[in-house]
Structures are given as C-alpha cells and as structure tokens.
Design a protein around this nucleic acid. Structure first.
Lengths: 203, 203
DNA sequence: AAGTGTGAAAAGTTTCACAGCG
DNA sequence: CGCTGTGAAACTTTTCACACTT
C-alpha cells in the first residue's frame, strides 16, 4: 500500500502545523483543529493520517509529538539529508541565502557553478565550488538531493552527470522537462508557469 | 463547461513548446510530436485541446500559430498583465532579476518593501517603493497580480491590504495558508515543501 | 459526548480505442 | 493512410456519513 502523491505534500504541511502546536505547548489536537490550520477538510486529514497508520484516540484526538514522529518516519525524514545546489546564479544564490530549507531540517552543504568566482562575490556562507568537482563531492558525501538552478541550455547535460553519480532527487527550477531514469524523481518548480496559471483566474 | 485545473497548467506548457516550434519555423504539429515535447501522452494532449475547442485537422495535425493564439485566448493571456512584487528581500530581489517572467510575457512593473533602501542597494532595474505606496499604485495601475515574498509574520496582514484594493491573484512564497475571499486565487510556491516531498522518494 | 477510522458514494482525471474526417 | 476528436472504461482522489471507541 502506498501513499497518494498529494497526500505526501499534505503530510508535510501537517508536520509543519504540528511543530507550531508543539512549540506552543499543545499536547493533543483534533482532526478538526489541525485540518483548519492546514487548510483542508477534517475528513481528508483523517484519511491522510490513515495512510500512515492508526495514531489517534477516539474522543480525544491525536498526540502532537507522537504524530510528528509518525509523519517524520513515514516521509523518511528521520536522518537528515545533505543537499547540494548546482547553478549559483541569481536564483541559485538567493536560494543559498534562503532560510526556509534549514528551518525544515535540510542542510545545503555546498554549491557548484561553472563560474564559482562570480558566485563567491555574492558573499555567501555556503562554499561555492567549480562544477568540475561536483561528481567527486557527491560520491564522497553520498549526496542524494540536488537543487538545480542552471540555465535551460545546460540543464539536461548537468542532470545526466548528476544521475550518473547516483543522485536520486532533483528540485528543478529550469522550465524544461528533464529526462531521467525511472528511479530518479524530478520535482519541477516553474515560476513563470505558476504566474500564468494565476492569470487564468483573474477577470 | 470549464477546464480542469491540471489541464490549465499543461496548456501553459504546450504554449511554451509551441512557441519553440514556431521559432524554428514549424507550421503544423501532430499531437504525438507536441505531446512528446511537453512530456505527456498524446491522448491527454488531444483531450486538453478539446477543452478549448476544435482546432486540428484530421490527418494533418494542428496549425502551430493558430494553436498558440487559441491557447493564449483560453488562458486569458491576450492583454499582458502588469505584476507587482511585494517583499524585496533575498528571494524577492532574486525574482526581480529573474528573466523567466518577462520571457512569458509578464512585466513586473514595480516592487514594494518595508525597507526600500536596502532593496535598492541591490542594484535592481525595477523601482522599489515603500510599502506605504502599495495601495495607491495598485489602484492607479489597475494591478491584479502580485508576487508575495514577505516574511511569514507579515504575510497575512499584507494580503489583507492587497485584497482590499482589488488584487485577484497572489503568487505566495511564504509557507503559510493565506486566508482570502473566494474570488481571490492564491498559488503557493513552498520551496521547503518541495524538497521534503522529494526526500520521500529517495531510498 | 467527543472525535477517530473507514466503507461507500461522488467527483475528478487519465487512458484506451476507434469512428470518422481530410 | 494519418491523425484528430471523443465516448466509455479505468483509475485516482475527495467527500460524506456513521459505526465505533475511549
């Protein structure tokens, strides 16, 4: 039995909401309360939690810390994953400064760029290496996750190299369809597309 | 009858692929070829195009330029929309430099920040105003689309102000659920969430 | 009484497969 | 013949509604 894709996204959201509840000292939470915080219906929340086991107490709700642990385990977030970033241009270097990743427990351990000097000039805290050192770094540090911000023309070529040295997940910011083997997951974040999608809904 | 949400995203992708075909001088294209370029099945492409009308010629395929025009119309992209950006911090100012929006025909006409001096120090081509001037600008220029990159704690407050002066679409980069009236569309881009989603698929 | 867990219905989406048109 | 347009089937996801547990 596996978890629907969309449910996985929502589990991450629940996880974040639960963390907030935990910080404010809540011990238990009902599906109605948590669902409201996460912006979904309570039935959907219960269904989603059902995918990862039975955790609640009828009449009472869910134990906050227990649920956090169960979701972490289900999402494979128990040991923290090192992440590298490839392509430290405008967007890439902004992401290197972005605090949101660390806040969710991801550590961006290094960045790679074809012109590392240019990127270094931006005064980043994370080391920027030449892209030629990418492969050896990935293998040495057993990196499995990559944030990809290279220009469109280079994306597929870089991806081929990443796949060849064992990368399993790619967060892709280039607006192209990358070709990868079935055991590699690509997650596209296409900013212009999101804006275009919005424009459909305005009158 | 209206177009399914997911189909709207794909129509934007087709639009982009068609533009590339048009640039390279193609006059017609079959569903099989275009589907391959967009990374979908041909049956799905035909179904999606079916939502916006009958445009193809049996035995021949689709006229490239005609299809571009039809998709543009269906997506409401005929007159180009001005967009403003609110919150010109790290991520916000990177987006101001990002060429992808202009490439898809959106013009980011102005940015607003609580500390515009800091943002201006980043040497941007787009003017950064104080956030107090936001409302009058929106009304004067009839802005309907906003890219929102303010810190979490301020997001809902800013959104309330945006909604009050008639904003209809919000591309939100803060990892929170914004509360808006039903006639306002919010599109969340949650970078940490995307990374978390990926980590589920690595072994 | 309060609130979970889940069958079953409903809604949404994708794929198949082929009739029919140029 | 080649390729579109689309009914119908298959599949996925959401929602309802209520039995059941603490």
């Amino acid at each position: 039995m596996d978890i629907p894709k969309k449910a996985i996204y929502r589990l991450s959201i629940y996880h974040r909401c639960l963390q907030k509840l935990s910080d404010s000292g809540q011990k238990t939470v009902s599906s109605i309360t948590l669902a409201k915080a996460a912006g979904v219906k309570s039935a959907q929340l219960r269904r989603d939690l059902g995918y990862i086991g039975q955790i609640g107490t009828r009449g009472l709700g869910y134990p906050v810390s227990g649920l956090i642990a169960t979701i972490r385990e289900a999402l494979g977030r128990e040991q923290l994953q090192p992440v590298i970033l490839v392509g430290a241009g405008n967007l890439g270097s902004a992401l290197l400064r972005y605090q949101g990743f660390q806040k969710e427990g991801f550590e961006v351990v290094a960045a790679f760029d074809a012109k590392p000097e240019d990127a270094r000039a931006r005064e980043l805290k994370i080391p920027v290496h030449d892209v030629s050192q990418m492969e050896s770094f990935i293998i040495e540090h057993q990196v499995k996750l990559v944030i990809l911000c290279v220009p469109i023309g280079f994306a597929q070529e870089v991806v081929n190299r990443l796949v060849a040295c064992g990368i399993q997940g790619i967060l892709n910011f280039s607006p192209i369809m990358l070709e990868v083997p079935a055991d590699v997951t690509v997650n596209n974040v296409d900013l212009a597309l999101e804006l275009e999608h919005l424009s459909y809904f305005i009158k």
